[in-house]
Design a protein around this nucleic acid. Structure first.
Lengths: 344, 344
DNA sequence: ACGAGTAGGGTAAACGCTTTCTAAGATCGT
DNA sequence: ACGATCTTAGAAAGCGTTTACCCTACTCGT
């Protein structure tokens, strides 16, 4: 095993100084053609590659973007990751991926690691519980990262205010829920069950809010009995519908917190001998890839997942005045399929 | 914005030398308790974090594991990534994720980047076209990475031989296909269509091979008319079944290259008025999360995705003699669900 | 023909750590 | 009480780049 060559070896072989080699490699300084050629040949000959750490230490950017999310397999996160990865390589950056599984300690640990790494951007993805503790934590993160020269990006979670030193890239959670609910309402449904997510989570609170606002816009009173909560799993959807049925709550449509919950709901409905969409219409959220594969194909609120990720990176990497605290909100739309039917 | 503190600042504040600070931080050298406390207080006071690049430059490990795959959203890859990420953080490593989308140039580029980064391990995931060009490319990669002190891991693709300087972690593709096909055969099916993947891809060739071997084991002659090829998409599955039907090829069961293809096949069957599993049994591969959500729930070959990822990292990080060219093969099993029915 | 300007390239000082080498006290056996 | 041994800590030499600074040799305009 050969020791890997350094820039000095290249310089020696090419018969120039290390400064010249460095200049040829970064290409931002005039170098005579003959010299450039000699250096390039030496590089090829030795199969030389720069040492990224030395470069990062000397220069000051690490060319790394960090992505911090709940997990890596949930389609919601996977698609955002896809967008981030895409834009990162587009911008000649590498992409570090970390998962928290919801553990704040792990999150703290990761932010520390990213400060160590001098990541150009740290992108925190997904809804949260908006507590004072959370705000304070974020403030500490923002400070630490700023000192390390990193941009903090909140992706798919609300802004912490225009004064907060972070970029925010969200999508219109409440708006999507409003559309979805309105879609059911204008199809004639009035008894619409809302299978919510965990209480306090910004994402699901916003979806619930959109639901409420749509009902109000249609002058339908919000019946608390129709609103349930659970985690975001299929099982949760299943059980919530089971309970609703057991309690004899009447409804002709369901708006689910996300597609997993919707899938569980449809399963419970089927188990109870109810047909979707003949007896009950169902609409989901996130437009997960399996939505069109369900029977019936699930109508769902489509999110610009990948664009969310791409935008996060793009904004974080863009330099210049005021670029540290932008706020963008992306729109959603309904992907209409077969799980909703007008009430006659 | 404060400049971030360095180890010298900590040393100054604690009234000790930088060497002592370094030793307190790495904790592998005896330091008096009083001194340790002083240093730790200074660290907390200044909110100091080490500079990972300086550390990597000085020491010689970067504590980074790189994952190179086709994409990030396909469940097959996402679950492997999940395992890699898990084991990486377990081993105090960060996880760099790169995608190739099948582009060899991009792959080359990534390997170069990983040499620059001194990644502890570079994990290449997924099936490939086993050409001479490929072997040669891998050999170059292995050389370059070895010189950079990185381990090369081939994950979910065949070994390049015991002399090749890489670790291989595969799962039993042919074995899984053998089991799946045997399952259909022992349910009485004899006319089993095989909806294959792209020709030449190691993964799908192996699955096809397992199919063949199972038929032979049951003394059923392999009918080429029953074997089709396509990419691994749902559309491909749909079209392949459509064509089979149009050509009047008779079959009572389908073994699909993967679950996407199986989903497409079921759709085509339904479109043609055939019932699954009453008219045709279907079995998929990969046991994707949506498999149980299909109607009927899809029987599929379950892969140890996460374990594959975890094992890749574990082997790559384990030091010692002979640890650079191990080869492990993980087993598969059939997840039985509702898409297969015995032929009476 | 001459000073200004520019292209091309070398020298050496950072960058922020780890680690080897060295040395001063403290502790101990005899 | 005195060398030997241990513990603890500092000085300084890298690690492999980038870049500020400096210098030389041309090219021009006049």
């Amino acid at each position: 095993m050969n020791k890997r060559p350094t820039i000095r070896d290249v310089a020696a072989m090419a018969g120039v100084s290390v400064a010249t080699v460095s200049r040829v490699l970064s290409g931002d300084y005039p170098v005579a053609n003959a010299t450039r050629t000699k250096v390039q040949r030496a590089v090829r000959e030795l199969d030389y590659v720069v040492n990224a750490h030395a470069r990062a230490l000397s220069g000051s950017t690490s060319n790394v973007v960090a992505l911090v999310m709940y997990d890596v397999v949930t389609p919601f996160f996977a698609f955002i990751a896809s967008g981030v990865e895409y834009q990162a390589t587009e911008s000649d950056r590498l992409c570090l991926v970390c998962t928290t599984h919801g553990d704040p300690d792990r999150e703290l640990e990761i932010v520390k690691l990213m400060r160590e790494q001098h990541a150009d951007a740290v992108i925190l993805v997904g809804g949260v519980n908006m507590t004072d503790d959370y705000r304070e934590r974020m403030y500490r993160y923002a400070k630490g990262l700023e000192d390390a020269g990193s941009r903090l990006v909140l992706c798919g979670r609300p802004s912490l205010g225009p004064d907060f030193p972070a970029i925010t890239v969200e999508y219109d959670n409440a708006g999507g829920a409003f559309s979805a609910t309105s879609h059911l309402l204008s199809s004639g449904h009035r008894r619409i069950a809302m299978l919510g997510g965990p209480i306090g989570n910004t994402t699901f609170d916003a979806r619930l809010d959109g639901y409420r606002r749509a009902l109000e816009a249609f002058r339908v009173t919000v019946d608390p009995a129709l609103i349930t909560h659970g985690d975001m799993s299929q099982d949760a959807g299943f059980r919530q519908v089971q309970r609703l049925l057991a309690e004899g709550v009447e409804f002709t449509a369901i708006f689910a917190a996300n597609d997993f919950v919707a899938a569980g709901a449809m399963r419970a409905l089927r188990a109870a001998g109810k047909s979707v969409p003949d007896d009950v219409s169902v609409i989901g959220y996130d437009d997960t890839p399996f939505a069109p594969e369900l029977t019936p194909a699930l109508t769902s609120v489509h999110l610009p997942h990948e664009e969310l990720g791409r935008t996060a990176v793009k904004l974080a990497l863009q330099r210049g005045e005021g670029s540290t605290r932008q706020h963008v909100m992306l729109g959603t739309h309904i992907a209409m399929r077969d799980s909703v039917r007008p009430l006659i």
